[in-house]
Design a protein around this nucleic acid. Structure first.
Ligand code: FES
Ligand code: FES
Lengths: 146, 146
DNA sequence: ACAATGTCGACTGAATTAGTCGTGAATACC
DNA sequence: GGTATTCACGACTAATTCAGTCGACATTGT
């Protein structure tokens, strides 16, 4: 039932990019270090995100990765679906072919949960996540200074 | 992000028992056949459910498995947790050790989703599932007769 | 005694996940 | 043009989890 590391890492990386929005490309190595992601693995994730149209990459010295569109326009739902494939807790929720229902009789519960989840994820933008993290850092600093 | 077959199969099996509540033990082979579960695998699931206190089993001829408590008192949440372990989509939601938060910054979203999910699952009893399935069968019959 | 049934644990095969590595391609800079 | 920097892509591997099988054993009704 766990999200795979792809989803977790991928979102972390995107938050990193969002926090550097407008500052030019961010390099893989930097992201990997800051977010504790194996760099060679992050490579794959960035490739996937690029193909999905979320990041743009530039090669050569001074190159790196940046958001392909504003952080406000990227929602967690689409991001995670690009990284993980479907988030459905049961296959039948995606396929939705009739006939399997008779066997199982629990789809309705999961359907509701799934719909709720998607709604919630769609409501959170990458910008909101980045902002939330900034907020969190600020209060953390305050706490340290007590 | 999928529920494993353990969860799916296990719940199917429990629904089966619920539908035969008060009719004496139901045999593994019957359940396996009706619910399309490999019998030798179902064995493990029943063992797990027995250890968790959801089913009682009797050996010998005429033996089988029955609910250890009324279907009304069994909720989907506890059932699934017995079968799957934690349902948390991220490990940090269970461990909740501080320090990992600074890295990631997406827990709050998942925490909400997770809480919601647990609430919903806790609100559904095995009795409700069984009843829902009966209902479904009835309308299916009606549809056939058009 | 014997047949029906559940109990338990060891084992296996398949699939998925989580990476690593090497080679190549674009680009900036001198 | 040469070189250093950085991304691009695919082949490969290791580790883990999932899904299931099997066989020997225990219990109980007849
Ligand atoms: S087959 Fe659809 S929920 Fe189990
Ligand atoms: S580490 Fe907690 S959500 Fe990623």
């Amino acid at each position: 039932m766990l999200l795979s590391t792809k989803g977790d890492y991928g979102v972390r990386a995107m938050i990193d990019l969002a926090k550097h929005e407008g500052e030019g490309p961010v390099q893989r190595a930097e992201i990997a270090k800051r977010r504790q992601i194996p760099e060679s693995y992050l490579d794959h994730l960035l490739a996937q995100l690029r193909r999905a149209g979320f990041v743009r990459s530039v090669r050569g010295p001074g190159g790196g990765h940046l958001l392909a569109k504003p952080a406000e326009e990227i929602c967690l739902l689409h991001l995670l679906e690009a990284l993980e494939g479907s988030l459905a807790p049961l296959q039948c929720l995606d396929n939705h072919e009739p006939g399997s229902e008779a066997i199982c009789g629990q789809e309705w519960v999961w359907q509701e949960i799934y719909d709720d989840m998607r709604r919630k994820l769609a409501a959170v933008s990458l910008a909101a996540l980045a902002e939330h993290e900034r907020e969190h850092e600020r209060t953390a600093v305050v706490n340290y200074s007590i």
